[in-house]
């Protein structure tokens, strides 16, 4: 396998508060290969978005990176000075936000916002940047881009605006696109289109995608691999097919069981008892153990690392090698 495009090693995101430091993302590690689509799923507050925001180093104070490394194409980027990091944003890592209605500045035409981004990262004349902007718009499926380029964001619908946002994220040919819930704010009818568009255009540009969502359906259709997050930790990571069909971690298992199915009719959806712990009260050992049907003594004492579990990796003591248990 080729060298990973992005390596995240033991990433910690923390929020200093008066009552002590809260750890929202706790030693998260994963790789993204060039051109790969990595899905990141989890409940609200599991730390998915914060992981993405930390990679691009745009955490809102007082949030901060409390430890670990982020390595892009062999170069460590989590400790770069702001100005160096700025040159990476947009240029090598593009980002798509959740709500296209608020992602675009209402006072500038989409053409102005596109050419501004293009010219920040590429040495192009005004005319050349405009041509590139029109190409990008036509690539993301905006009809009549030559005339629409001079329209303002409020003259577009939500789905069209998210297309513009994707064009903006891809403006400087990044190697990685972080898509943070790109379809959550959209109508169900256009969600599938946008996801298909995101996957297609990123593939054409050769960009890897980190797709953050809580929609398993989106992940199943789009991602190559998937990371499941719970209480700021990755509990399972592996090829999307394996994780969905053959989940190893009890949490992933419960998550998959709770997805309504068209083929099986059920009176009630399966659910996991209890709810995700608050940041102030994350239990010792495995964060999931109070809700885990298979928890045993060790789960309460020691926190499991990601362990090889057949086809995926799961942070669960069930998969500890026999000799390690002693």
């Amino acid at each position: 396998m080729s060298d990973p495009l992005l390596q995240v090693r033991d990433l910690v995101v923390e929020f200093p508060t008066r009552r002590g430091t809260l750890t929202a993302v706790d030693k998260v590690s994963f790789d993204i290969a060039p051109g790969e689509v990595l899905g990141v799923v989890g409940e609200s507050g599991a730390g998915k978005s914060l992981t993405g925001t930390a990679i691009i180093n745009l955490l809102e104070p007082p949030g901060r990176i409390g430890g670990g490394e982020v390595i892009l194409q062999g170069e460590r980027i989590d400790n770069l000075p702001q100005e160096e990091m700025r040159k990476i944003r947009g240029k090598r890592i593009g980002m798509v936000f959740q709500d296209p209605l608020t992602s675009l500045n209402p006072l500038y035409t989409i053409g102005e916002q596109l050419t501004e981004t293009i010219q920040t990262h590429m040495k192009l004349t005004d005319a050349a940047a405009r041509i590139r902007a029109i190409e990008l718009l036509s690539e993301v499926g905006i009809p009549a881009p030559e005339s629409r380029i001079d329209a303002y964001p409020h003259q577009f619908s939500g789905g069209m605006r998210q297309r513009v946002v994707i064009a903006l994220a891809l403006a400087a040919n990044p190697v990685l696109v972080l898509a943070d819930e790109p379809t959550t704010a959209l109508d169900v009818s256009v969600q599938a289109q946008i996801i298909a568009l995101l996957k297609k255009t990123c593939a054409e540009h050769g960009a890897a995608v980190m797709l953050i969502t809580h929609d398993m359906g989106v992940i199943a259709e789009t991602a190559d691999r998937v990371a499941v997050m719970y209480a700021g930790r990755i509990v399972e990571i592996g090829p999307v097919r394996e994780v969905i069909k053959n989940a190893k971690h009890p949490y992933t298992d419960g998550l998959m069981a709770s997805i309504p199915s068209l083929t099986h009719e059920a009176e009630r959806l399966a659910q996991i008892e209890g709810s995700m712990p608050r940041l102030t009260a994350i239990p010792d050992g495995c964060a999931f153990h109070p809700r885990c049907p298979q928890a045993f003594d060790r789960c309460r004492r020691e926190r499991p690392e990601l362990l090889d579990a057949d086809t995926t990796q799961a942070a669960c003591w069930l998969y500890a090698k026999e000799e390690a248990v002693t």
Binding site: R86, F97, T102, L104, N105
Partner: peptide
């Protein structure tokens, strides 16, 4: 606002973000 966060995520300079995007709004 999100559009300022997005402007930062697009790698615009602080100057462009603060004066071009924020001040005008």
């Amino acid at each position: 606002t999100d559009y300022i966060k997005f402007a930062r995520a697009r790698g615009l300079t602080e100057r462009a973000v603060n004066f071009g995007h924020a001040l005008k709004n």
